[in-house]
Design a protein around this nucleic acid. Sequence first.
DNA 1: AGGTAATCCTACTGGCGAGTAGGTAGCGCG
DNA 2: CGCGCTACCTACTCGCCAGTAGGATTACCT
Lengths: 256, 256
Amino acid sequence: MHAEQPVRTGRAKRLPRAVRERQIMDAAVDVFSRLGFHAASMDEISEVAGISKPMLYAYLGSKEELFATCIRRESTRMIEAIANGVETDQPADVQLWSGLRAFFGFVGGNRPSWQVLHRQASSQGGPFAQELADMRGRAISLVAALLVHSGDLPDVPRAGDKEAESLAAALVGAGESLADWWLDNPEEPAGVVAARLMNLVWMGFGDLVAGNVWHPPSRRAPESSDQSPDHTEPPDQVEPLDEAEFQHQPESEHRS
Amino acid sequence: MHAEQPVRTGRAKRLPRAVRERQIMDAAVDVFSRLGFHAASMDEISEVAGISKPMLYAYLGSKEELFATCIRRESTRMIEAIANGVETDQPADVQLWSGLRAFFGFVGGNRPSWQVLHRQASSQGGPFAQELADMRGRAISLVAALLVHSGDLPDVPRAGDKEAESLAAALVGAGESLADWWLDNPEEPAGVVAARLMNLVWMGFGDLVAGNVWHPPSRRAPESSDQSPDHTEPPDQVEPLDEAEFQHQPESEHRS
DNA sequence: AGGTAATCCTACTGGCGAGTAGGTAGCGCG
DNA sequence: CGCGCTACCTACTCGCCAGTAGGATTACCT
């Protein structure tokens, strides 16, 4: 599916450093995501990048530096995609809903990024753990802030930080796990998966078992687009997903 | 932290094979959990186990076989601990609650096992993924069965498998993630953490922000008291769930 | 053109770690 | 006792891979 096949016969075309660095990073994410940090070799990365090994070292430093850079880049992309997707001027449930949609949209459109972030980075115990923990921390903070904002949690007037943080950790973990499950069951659209998680964490099993389901407010969500004109880079591609996919969900009210 | 004694000076005492195998497995879990599969070396494992390398190969085969065996053993221990902890004759919410308590109790009392299972195994893409996926699958099935049983899910008369399975995956992931968070914030007792997750997945944020909390049936305030010694028969050592103190209890030992 | 600096290469080193060959020590048993 | 068996060892081989030395090509500028 990834078509990074420069085929490496003979000498590579001369390119400005910035472009090469990008190619290398793309190749590195690809290889790391498939093989994991240790099993990935610099030789293979250089081959996929269509370049020779010393270039890696000249441009991106050691293997560890390269990996850390990958994590930093991909995590930033993801956090931004989510932050852009959240409709901050809406009530709490809608904010959560939009955040979940953005998250699953990103995962669906950037599987290698996701793999590198979730699986590989978390299992290495070096400086990467730090990098990854930062990303996770940012995500968790986003969620925690949302929770704290949306009316204080009931039983924690003082330890609210810990309370919200742990709940956010659980939610993030649920999202990660569900995203992994989704990769193994890709026949379902992102919106459906996001809706399931939304129902779980907002309504809870208690309500679900009783037949109560959460619904998005029945208005058209503004297709939030990037307004900044000086943004030359194309925004990260996220799978399009709108309310239509939500409806695709097995019809809630009609039991049979 | 781990007092894996042997100190390996000269020849090791002669021991029957079964005992050695156990020592080796314990050492392997310890090292794998700290270093991960690739970074762990057979030399180090043999050193920790207090024997020489050829013994590893004579008894447990290759490095991959050893690792797979570790995963199998630890995952079985955990599944059994949880299955034993679930009070199957209770209503759904109580079942879920007892399962969560058993899970967090196990994690608290068997950190290396947990590390090996959750972090290391999931990131290697060999036959281990299979082993690990089996474990996860069993856990998810447990939860899914509980969900399906506890009154059918409302909106899934036909696609119930997928629905329940994905929700179970999300729940399991939330548990895993919260367990990881807990390892970084060990000052909180297991019961509190379990109660948080219970509230999240049973009540949902919607109820929580509205001030509604889930309570175990006979007692109030799940986080303030959890003293009932309803431990019938712990097959594996599981941390006591009352918050008296378990900041850092001595590591588990497998002695005969 | 010719200089020069960035880009790119082939071909090595050095170390680490999986796995093994081939031998030594304790224990039981006739 | 000596025969054998099992537990146990030291001391290698061998391949893989991170990282580098040193040289060959361009692109671009004057």
